[in-house]
Design a protein around this nucleic acid. Structure first.
Lengths: 175, 175
DNA sequence: TTGACATAGCCAACAAGTTGAGTATAAGGT
DNA sequence: ACCTTATACTCAACTTGTTGGCTATGTCAA
């Protein structure tokens, strides 16, 4: 049920359309939460059914109509009680680890390819996060909101660094 | 489809029952792949339908009958071609990060509780992995299989360390 | 003028993962 | 005598996430 709570968190700040939410997932929380437009739209209708959000149809000129969603009192309560619930860590499922575990059955060159490909992927992501980090660190006396967002970004940065380091460790071990 | 390939990797070594596989997932790869018994049993029947594995019923004394699964030629081919496919990194979805992002809406004490709880969870897991690491490092001239398994364990260790460090970073930042 | 991209949403089918129950036997502890 | 744990597997219902298609309009570049 945590996708809905992530959405509720965004709606706590201000009203969003499903489309807006999709973009926020893309550029604000992609380092720890992935959600497709389809998933978001479906979740929003479910949440409307539960009474956690309210929709208002907005006609726009030059653009299609949109539905603006607002958090309700009941949604706010739901979110607050969720905050206090213990978090269950996400189960991990990583294909690449399976390939390393099966290392004896793979040709060395394929394994190296898999690892170097993966490393560049994480390097690219890291570069992107580093830029965001740099932008934040230039701000004097940042708002609390921004600080919390920065702390989640730090998690993303650590995640990427850790992947790169591990790829390097494995590459060193097998050559 | 990667659960089936993880199973195929285990079956490459030797025949397993669904129950055996469940235990191997628990103690050998839990640091990067979680799978319930139910999931494994269902996946095995699907794989039997695809011809990737063959089942043999084994009667046992004092224990229930079991089904021993063996990888087939077609399963082996499937696995080999999967090895060469590019890996898509697992999308991340972490409740705790949502709570940190929403930090302004949580009471400081709840947030601290969430972070310290999470940190102890990862600390306990890390201790367990450290023991396994220690056991491996005592072996002289380990088999290649064991080396690859160790490398996946290293990933698990890095993962836990990284979580602990990040929790500490956030805790330091908010107090 | 044609195609790509952004805006804005909907639906259906499928794949994957979770939860909870049910069926059995045997070993070991309280 | 009863309870828990381990072995061993099955089924059903549900939630979550993915894939691909569909409907529109407007802008910008090749």
């Amino acid at each position: 049920m945590a996708l809905s709570h992530t959405i509720l968190t965004f709606l706590s700040e201000c009203a969003h359309s499903g489309y807006d939410l999709g973009k926020r997932f893309e550029d604000a929380v992609s380092c720890f939460w992935k959600a497709s437009h389809q998933q978001i739209y479906r979740e929003l209708s479910k949440m409307e059914g539960l009474g956690w959000v309210e929709a208002e149809a907005i006609a726009q000129q030059g653009k299609p109509d949109k539905k603006l969603y607002r958090i309700t009192e009941s949604g706010r309560k739901e979110l607050e009680s969720w905050f206090e619930l213990p978090c269950i860590p996400t189960p991990i499922r990583e294909d690449l680890l399976v390939k390393v575990l099966a290392g004896s059955y793979l040709s060395r060159s394929v394994l190296i390819q898999q690892l170097t490909d993966r490393r560049s992927l994480h390097q690219a992501q890291l570069d992107c996060y580093r830029e965001k980090e740099h932008a934040f660190l230039k701000v004097d006396n940042p708002e609390e909101h921004l600080v919390f967002r920065y702390l989640t970004l730090r998690r993303g940065i650590r995640y990427e660094v850790e992947w790169i380091d591990w790829c390097n460790e494995v590459l060193a071990a097998i050559s």
